[in-house]
Simulated assay, not measured.
Amino acid sequence: MNLQGKRILVTGADGFIGSHLTEALIRRGHDVRAFVFYNSFGHWGWLDESPADVKREVDVFAGDIRDPHGVRTAMKGCDVVLHLAALIGIPYSYHSPDAYVDTNIKGTLNIVQAARDLDVEKVIHTSTSEVYGTAQYVPIDEKHPLQGQSPYSATKIGADQIALSFYRSFATPVAIARPFNTFGPRQSARAVIPTVITQIANGERRIKLGALYPTRDFNYIQDSVAGFIAMAESDRVVGEEINLGSNYEISIGDTVQLIAEAMHADIEIVTDEQRLRPDKSEVERLWADNRKALELLDWAPQFGQREGFKQALAETARWFTDPANLARYKHGIYNI
């Protein structure tokens, strides 16, 4: 699909990945409508920090993904929908699961129902590697069983299946993007990499963390954005689930040490009990098989393997240590 001349809706455009994706699409010359979460302050989330040339070109729609009427209004006239709006924090899902059902499952239903009725040309629905749970085999391909090990992951599994059911039932042109552990500038401090960086940047040397043994497949924000755009452009992805991962596995403990090296800090890691997931809820191993993305999208991470990961960590640390950026984060509290 040639995106030139198409109107593209990005839901969750005010968030971490969504704001980067919106900016990238605008800079490529695309016509973008940004769906941001309505608030009475008129804030656009991270899009408030976008350069002036981006803000001049973007069409901002403030609404609530849980409201089918607002979703339908936002989607009118749009050809492609990149659906990223979701509640994503795992710890928050332990005590407010109902909010995750409404936002993640019902919000996705609102998107695909409107897409069906409005004859939208393509919907890219955003999944997460958390739907796989602890790896039963590695690397994890798209045929791996799905395991809801937290209310968050359970609702994302539900959202994925709702989206795919509309493809199978009504031929709604849906594809599933499944990013693994995206990180980079603007990420919430609920995630491990910003948690470590902001503590070190604020002078802490006893770093509070949860479990260190789980492994993750981290994907730099530029690579994730490129993957989303490649999915929007591809004519081969409808009805498919596609991993967007680096195919590089590293433990949380080793990741922390690489961050400390990048920031030239001598640190001690302290276990903070409130940061530990319940035993059966902890996803112990994630490692992406990204061959399908290479085959269908001609996509491969530019920041792959250990050296690419180290470069991306350094870029991320530089952004967070800018005083204006660092001031936005509350390093002294546990962010859920």
Rank of each mutant, 00 (worst) to 15 (best):
Q4I: 03
T11A: 08
G12P: 11
G12H: 06
I17C: 07
I17E: 10
H20A: 11
L21S: 03
H30C: 04
V36F: 01
Y38F: 13
L47V: 08
R56W: 02
E57F: 00
E57S: 11
F61W: 08
D64N: 15
R66A: 00
V71T: 09
T73N: 13
M75Y: 09
C78F: 04
V80A: 00
I88G: 00
G89N: 14
S93E: 12
Y94A: 04
Y100K: 07
V101D: 00
N110D: 14
V120R: 09
H125I: 05
S129D: 15
Y132S: 02
Q149S: 05
S169A: 08
S169P: 01
A177K: 08
Q187R: 06
R190V: 10
A191Y: 14
V192H: 09
T195G: 03
V196Y: 04
V196K: 02
Q199S: 01
N202L: 11
I207P: 10
L209M: 15
R216I: 04
N219V: 13
S224T: 15
A226N: 15
G227N: 13
A230D: 07
M231Q: 08
S234P: 14
R236C: 05
R236K: 15
R236Y: 12
V237Y: 05
E241M: 06
L244A: 06
L244K: 05
N247G: 00
Y248R: 10
L258T: 04
A260E: 02
A265Y: 02
D266Y: 06
D266L: 02
R277D: 10
P278F: 00
K280F: 10
L286M: 14
W287E: 06
W287L: 13
N290Q: 07
K292C: 01
A293H: 05
E295L: 09
L297R: 06
F309R: 07
K310W: 11
E315D: 13
T316D: 11
R318M: 12
F320A: 01
D322A: 04
P323A: 01
